[in-house]
Nucleic acid binder design. Structure first.
Length: 265
DNA sequence: ACCAACGCCGTAA
DNA sequence: TTACGGCGTTGGT
């Protein structure tokens, strides 16, 4: 099987993987869920080249604890991100281009950018009218003073979508990210970039690293407003209890990202 | 400017 | 499992 073939099946099987992950609980294992949904249990190997059992184990409490304990600061991420703030007062002169993508390792989604870099990324399966989707409304609400229009040809978008398909082993990606947010939010988002791929942190730990150990709840709110999911890895922050916790695009997507981070490549 | 309500929380019981 | 504290953000006066 060629790399290309497996990449196609990966991105096509992601929807089924996400469906199964949305159905699991402490009572319901991946195997139970896949049987109930009448989904083949080999979708996980098609998706990431690892078995359902391996994935199940990776998101089990024991492995989650291990990922929380890892505190290596070397070689943090495969993606080297340069973060720049969007100045709100300049927004009326800002042009934002957006592209819907129908396939990736984490399902369909929306990516947007300014001329400097990516300003928005999220994952949602949109229906026939994309402009009424939660993801589109969230993006346009954030940038309502800017000029937003659809564009399929942006080099930055293609680069991001390519990466999210994981069609080949990614060594390194240099990426510019342009974020709109308060000082506090941007400080929180920057600290997320320090969480190594394959390990996890907690809301409490993040609040301590920014010097406000009691602001964990505010940190949760700030993380929830992360405009560029996956690349600003808010999926790597979970509850101190070991629960996966909530996620803007669904906790099934969060689980998929956590397991994929750990197992893929 | 002020206040109330709300969150991807943590922890104590 | 439930209740409450603490903190930045937002939306309504």
């Amino acid at each position: 099987m060629t790399t290309l073939t497996s990449a196609i099946t990966r991105n096509e099987s992601s929807l089924q993987v996400l469906t199964v992950l949305g159905k699991i609980s402490q009572k319901n294992s991946l195997l139970d869920a896949s049987k109930k949904l009448n989904i083949q249990d080999d979708v996980f190997s098609k998706w990431g080249g690892f078995s359902m059992e391996t994935f199940q184990k990776t998101i089990s409490p024991g492995c989650i604890k291990e990922m929380l304990a890892e505190n290596s600061a070397e070689e943090a991420n495969h993606v080297n991100i340069r973060l720049k703030k969007i100045v709100r007062s300049n927004l009326s002169h800002t042009i934002i281009k957006y592209t819907f993508f129908d396939r990736s390792a984490f399902g369909p989604g929306l990516v947007a950018s300014t001329d400097f870099g990516i300003c928005y990324l999220g994952f949602e399966a949109v229906s026939s009218d994309p402009t009424s989707s939660k993801i589109f409304l969230d993006m346009t609400e954030r940038f309502k003073e800017a000029a937003c229009f659809e564009n399929e040809e942006t080099k930055q978008h293609l680069q991001v979508i390519d990466y999210l398909k994981f069609e080949q082993a990614q060594q390194h990606l240099d990426m510019n990210v342009h974020v709109l947010g308060s000082e506090f939010q941007i400080e929180v988002w920057k600290s997320l970039l320090l969480i190594p791929k394959g390990s996890l942190s907690t809301y409490g730990k993040i609040s301590s690293t920014i010097g406000k150990p009691r602001a964990f709840r505010a940190v949760g709110s700030a993380i929830g407003r992360n405009p560029v999911s996956y690349f600003i890895p808010c999926h790597r922050v979970i509850n101190s209890s070991g629960e996966i916790g909530n996620y803007m695009w669904g906790s099934n997507v969060k689980k998929a990202m956590i397991g994929f981070d750990k197992l893929f490549n």
